[in-house]
Each structure stands twice: as structure tokens, then as C-alpha cells.
Design a protein around this nucleic acid. Structure first.
Length: 283
DNA sequence: CACCATGTTCCTTG
DNA sequence: CCAAGGAACATGGT
């Protein structure tokens, strides 16, 4: 469940459940999830911590931890990779097959589950250092976007997905924002006019905000115990029946009609990733 | 069996 | 130095 909106929704969901709780037990089931520290060392650093705050930076969850006995506060980062999930369950409940780390909080367990194991928990806070600006911050303007893109000749979509350029966009929302803005994904970044950059800026904000609102409006099942269905929100109830075809403007809609002009959406590959666009609306 | 998948990092090639 | 492409990472869905 990984791009900025999904991580943001997860952070908002977990915040009231975790803040104020203390870590009583740490069980690492897959050492890979806590690299490079290793299970033993990771447990030492986390055990006894009280969760003071939970935030998000790019696609990272940021846990601010207060330690016992006058030890310095620590910050732990969580990244979901492609398939990471995080949720609470009653302690002693049956373990998910791909549970990577289980953190006992007393009456509940805080579970990090990740079938593909591309994600992880880390204390390497330097990972945040090179990240680009947050697109939902006040200061994210056409001028900032222009300066971040620089004189690069890379395809704009590839550039938007570079976390050092801009934080939080992934393969889905990069395609979505470009369609919103009417810009073809393969255009070299340096060739974009100011008008186009201003539209792109609005498009990025708009698709991210819409996705966050969608997540907020759904009843979510963060454990995803139900049928995983290619959505990044695991919903329950009547609202949850939407497919990606309805949720997205272009992503995963190859051959389907563009919502603006009915031209079929075209799939291509950029930077090794599937890319979706309307050849008529996006120039 | 084949191919695809929300992410990131590393390596090679041009 | 830069850009592009591929592979790797592990597993599951279609």
C-alpha cells in the first residue's frame, strides 16, 4: 500500500492507536525487515520505548520514541515497500503468514507484515536526508517544482518519481498527475513551459488530495485479511467495491476510454515502469 | 508455465 | 557527469 496518500492515511489511522503506548516486547520474525541492524540489536533499540508521535515524510512513517531511564529519544522509520501493511490486533491473535515484526504493546500487538519484504523498519534516519520537498506543503509551488526538476533531460514522469526531486509520488500518482495536467509522460523535464509546470503542480496536489480524501471516506481494513484486490485501500462494506478502473484517471486503464475525450488509454514503459496516458489529452 | 505488480538500489552500457 | 536499461530483492495474483 505504498504511495504518499496511502502512507498518509495509514499514519492518521495508527496515530491515535499508537501514541502514548509503550513497547513491551519485540519479536522479529524476518531479520530482513530490520536490516541492517539485525533482530537482536533492533530489539534493544526499540524495547521499552514509548511512542510519542507518528508522522510521515515522503513514503516513510516516522515514529518518535521516548526511551526509558533518561536515554535519548529515538526516531524509527517504517517503509512499506510494495506490500507492507501495519495494524494492531489483540495480543495472542493468530499471526499473519507474512508477519515480519510483531511489537507487543500490552493488550495489543502492533504488526508489520510484508509479503514481498521490500519494506522494513529502521533507525537509519539519514534516509530522510536527500528527499525532495513534500508536494502537499504550502511551499510547493511552480517555482519550486521548476527548480527541483532542474535542467534534466529525463522524462518528466521518471523525474517526478525520483524521491530526491519530489517526495511521495510513485508509479500510480505520477501517471495520474500528468494526465490531470495534460502533459505526456515522456516529455523531457527541461522542455516544460511555466504554464505547464503550474498545471502539473496543481495536478500533483489535486490527485494526492483526492486520494487522501478517498481513503478517509472509506472504512478501511488495514490488516487486509479480506481479498487483496489490487487496490491500495483495503476497504470493507458497500463503499469498498470500487475498482482501480473507477478510482484512477489512467493508471491500469490501458484500452479503456479517457474520461476527458474517450480516446483509448495507452500503456508504455518508462524507466522500466508501466506508464499510462491519453495520447490526445496529454501532449 | 508466463507475465505482471504500489518501491528502491545497484550495476552496466552508451 | 548523465541517462537509460536491466537486474535484483520475495511473493502472490491473473
Amino acid at each position: 500500500m505504498p504511495e504518499l496518500p496511502e502512507v498518509e492515511i495509514l499514519a492518521r489511522h495508527l496515530r491515535p492507536l499508537l501514541v502514548g503506548k509503550r513497547v513491551r516486547m519485540v519479536t522479529v520474525l524476518r531479520a530482513k525487515a530490520v536490516r541492517p541492524l539485525g533482530a537482536e540489536r533492533f530489539r534493544e533499540l526499540l524495547n521499552g520505548a514509548e511512542i510519542r508521535a507518528l508522522g510521515r515524510r515522503a513514503k516513510y512513517l516516522c515514529f518518535d520514541l521516548a526511551m526509558e531511564r533518561g536515554l535519548k529519544p529515538r526516531r524509527m522509520l517504517g517503509h512499506l515497500g510494495m506490500t507492507g501493511r501495519m495494524y494492531l490486533q489483540p495480543s495472542g491473535a493468530p499471526q499473519a503468514r507474512h508477519a515480519s515484526v510483531v511489537i507487543g504493546l500490552g493488550p495489543e500487538d502492533w504488526v508489520f507484515e510484508d509479503s514481498r519484504q521490500f519494506g522494513g523498519l529502521t533507525f537509519e534516519v539519514q534516509r530522510l536526508e536527500g528527499l525532495g520537498p513534500e508536494p502537499l506543503d504550502e511551499g510547493f509551488t511552480e517555482a519550486l517544482l521548476r527548480s527541483r526538476l532542474g535542467e534534466s533531460s529525463q522524462a518528466i514522469k521518471v523525474r517526478l518519481m525520483d524521491q530526491r526531486v519530489l517526495a511521495g509520488l510513485g508509479n500510480i500518482y505520477a501517471s495520474e498527475a500528468l494526465h490531470w495536467a495534460g502533459i505526456a509522460p515522456h516529455r523531457p523535464a527541461w522542455g516544460l513551459k511555466r504554464r505547464e509546470l503550474a498545471r502539473l503542480c496543481d495536478g500533483i496536489r489535486s490527485v494526492l488530495e483526492t486520494a487522501i480524501r478517498t481513503g478517509e471516506s472509506m472504512l478501511l481494513d488495514f490488516a487486509g485479511s479480506g481479498a487483496g484486490d489490487g487496490l491500495f485501500y483495503y476497504g470493507r462494506g458497500p463503499e469498498a467495491a470500487e475498482t482501480s478502473e473507477e478510482r484512477f484517471r489512467v493508471y491500469d486503464r490501458a484500452g479503456q476510454p479517457c474520461r476527458e475525450c474517450s480516446e483509448p488509454i495507452v500503456k508504455s514503459v518508462l524507466g522500466g515502469r508501466s506508464t499510462y496516458a491519453c495520447g490526445r489529452c496529454q501532449r
